[in-house]
């Protein structure tokens, strides 16, 4: 079973969490268990009540309103320790990993804010997306047919990267 906090790793620890008036069981991975503190813990929070104020750019004066009330428990980023509460309150995350950890919340908010949750613009130098995979495979076949050893190495490296990225992403 996956960790109920980050949803990324296998759960290894069982903890009790107090939420409003009842106690709930949670199953955590090693990393999340390390960050779990019973005193402030993953205590429940009301997404809509805590928010507003302190917005960085006016736009965010109602960032919290972008979330559904039934949204779940607090999540913590294993890399930078930012919590989903902090994200919801401010619209800010602490690192790139946060976007994976808070992905469902990010999707919820940007869908309303940006009317989309999928980038369509420029990509950085050296970035390949999945549609490049077929193209690279075809190029690799050509390189093999032509015995172009340098090209074969280069293309296999790129393909390996894409496959690895895919594995990390899911």
């Amino acid at each position: 079973m996956k960790c109920t906090n980050c949803g990324l790793h296998e759960a290894t620890t069982e903890v009790m969490v107090r939420r409003n008036n009842h106690v709930e069981k949670m199953f955590l991975c090693g990393e999340c268990a390390k960050n779990f503190r019973p005193d402030m813990g993953f205590d429940s929070f009301d997404m809509l009540n805590k928010l507003i104020n302190g917005s960085p750019m006016g736009l965010l004066s109602s960032f919290g309103n972008l979330f559904d009330t039934h949204a779940s428990r607090t999540l913590i980023c294993p890399d930078c320790k930012t919590t989903s509460e902090e994200f919801i309150k401010s619209g800010f995350v602490g690192c790139s990993k946060c976007y994976k950890v808070f992905e469902p919340l990010v999707v919820q908010s940007v869908k309303k804010l940006q009317q989309s949750d999928r980038h369509v613009g420029k990509t950085p130098y050296g970035y390949f997306d999945e549609t490049d995979e077929d193209r690279l495979k075809a190029e690799l076949k050509d390189a093999v047919d032509n015995g172009d050893y340098g090209k074969i190495v280069e293309l296999s490296e790129k393909l390996k990267k894409i496959v690895n990225n895919k594995r990390e992403g899911n």
Binding site: G91, R118, H119, P124
Partner: peptide, 19 residues
């Protein structure tokens, strides 16, 4: 650069994601 296939360029505030 920090980049994600879905969210685009990753920024510290979610309002700047994408481009």
């Amino acid at each position: 650069f920090a980049f994600d296939g879905r969210f685009g360029y990753l920024t510290s505030c979610a309002t700047n994601l994408g481009t």
